[in-house]
Amino acid sequence: MNILVCISHVPDTTTKIKFAENNTRLDTTGIQWVINPWDELSLTRALELKEKSGSGVQKVSVAHVGPSSAEPTIRKALAIGADDAYRVDVEALDSYQVAAQLAEIVKAGSFDMILCGIESSDYNGSNVGGMLAEFLDYVSVSGISHLDIEGGEILVTRELDGGREKLVVPSPFVGIVQKGIAKEPRIAAMRGIMMARKKPVHLVDATEAGPLTRVKEFEPPQPRPACKFVDPENPEQLVELLQNEAKVI
């Protein structure tokens, strides 16, 4: 069994987000780029499964859609333990275009399980995984908090609004993962970093599929009004304000 983990590379969440050119694009100066936290956890779980005896996982690959500036992110994934990587050499424009590119990698390869994070922490679209599944007409399961392979069966737990379900899924399938999939992201060790240099990164030509949406500009959120402070010696006043001013209780 071969697993493909789709990774996106996003600004570190502590980065102060700024925009350039009249707010039409992200100002990338000073941004620290990281693997999207969800994708890092998916990769961690994929590697755990590969190491689990009897799981039948032979290979864990990663795929990324984006220009060469993402190489360090890809090398990091290889250093963490992925066997090889695919990069589609095109600027990522929206979820639809990214999913269309990833679908070509899947079609050309032989993957039994494709993992995506529930959302990227930049565009927060949570769409790539589902779109990829539809391009391929594969089964998709969203909100996966647990993934295992037992006796040749792929078992997943998905979180629903107000409960959870355990499912047996056929392969190939697309899994969209969330909290719980792995405890802590795996960190690259020195040996991994050395080995990563020799692992293959397959460059893939972009297909024609373009985006369906167009971001015209970015807008800062409405500034919240300044905080109204209540005297700590008089917390009763807070109840008063919530009742009579905000009228929320």
Partner: peptide, 21 residues
């Protein structure tokens, strides 16, 4: 929610419809 997030992207590709999430 979980349901909409699972459905919208699949519908998007099926209908070639742009999504705003």
């Amino acid at each position: 929610n979980n349901t909409g997030k699972a459905l919208a992207p699949r519908l998007s590709v099926r209908m070639k419809a742009a999504v705003a999430s």
